[in-house]
């Protein structure tokens, strides 16, 4: 097999490994829109990094962290609901990112905007893979450390607080992990589709799980299946890879729902 396909496969596996657990928490805590906002802001991070000549990865992580701080602070201050705030931030960040990126493009015409918007898993290099797996390890360790508290606040924030858990600390920590995940995985599906891989596999997994941990493991399995089928069909029919992976995840989601709904099953 060609090296670019192997790299793509390993890149996809890396994404599935972190999208499973983070995606479940995103679904439980209704943070889908927040994930979208972070991802949109990531474009601004990339653009700024390119214009100032440092690693896009760092730009995305920094912007993600800044956004997490802003949102965290705004939620406490503002009378606006968090979904309105997210709407403002999300589209502002996306628009600003597109403007900065187009300015950068004028100077360095080689930059491919589409790659950041939709990802290019087939262009993943060996060194990018190292970054991605470093991210996977870091995120996994962090998740493992904060897991009991994170589950507690996902179940009921006030009960968690009376148990002495720092709710805002954990919320913030999770936002940062999400930003980090987007930063390292942006090449796989791009900023416009990355939330899909957080949510869809988790949603499929919900149907078959009775415990939180089961749901996470199943979400990883569904994400892996989506990556493999998406990659395969993209090669077979020469379709864009990122969107193919998302469509594969969605097809799986509908399939398991139909199967589940058939008579004779529970």
């Amino acid at each position: 097999m060609d090296e670019f396909i192997i790299n793509a496969l390993f890149g996809g596996i890396a994404l599935a490994l972190v999208a499973g657990p983070l995606g479940c928490v995103v679904v439980w805590r209704r943070m889908a829109y927040f994930g979208d906002t972070l991802a949109h802001a990531a474009l601004l991070g990339v653009a700024l990094a390119l214009s100032a000549n440092f690693l896009p990865l760092i730009g995305v992580a920094l912007i993600g962290a800044v956004l997490a701080v802003i949102l965290f602070w705004l939620e406490k201050q503002s009378e606006l609901s968090s979904d309105a705030l997210l709407g403002i931030l999300s589209h502002t960040a996306l628009a600003a990112g597109l403007i900065v990126l187009s300015l950068v493009q004028r100077q360095t015409p080689g930059i491919d905007m589409m790659m950041y918007l939709f990802g290019d898993i087939l262009a993943i290099s060996r060194s990018q893979l190292y970054w991605m797996y470093a991210g996977v390890i870091l995120i996994s360790i962090a998740m493992w450390r904060i897991w009991p508290g994170l589950l507690s606040i996902s179940v009921h924030e006030e009960l968690a607080r009376t148990d002495g858990i720092s709710v805002s600390g954990l919320r913030f920590a999770f936002m940062l992990l999400l930003a980090l995940m987007i930063a390292v995985m942006i090449n796989v599906v791009g900023i416009l589709l990355i939330t899909a891989l957080l949510i869809i596999p988790a949603a499929s997994a919900r149907l078959f799980s009775r415990t939180p941990v089961q749901m996470i493991l199943l979400a990883v399995v569904f994400a892996l299946l989506s990556v493999v089928t998406g990659l395969g069909s993209s090669m077979r029919w020469d379709t864009p890879t990122g969107p193919s992976i998302v469509v594969a995840a969605a097809l799986l989601f509908f399939m398991v729902h139909v199967l589940r709904g058939l008579p004779g099953r529970e």
């Binding site: 679904v27 439980w28 209704r30 009991p148 589950l151 507690s152 996902s154 179940v155 009960l159 968690a160 148990d163 949603a203 919900r206 799980s209 009775r210 415990t211 939180p212 089961q214 749901m215």
Partner: peptide
């Protein structure tokens, strides 16, 4: 939340 699969025993264990 319905999206969170949780048995009573998991809840008690929190």
């Amino acid at each position: 939340a319905d999206t969170l699969p949780l048995r009573v025993r998991d809840f008690l264990g929190l």
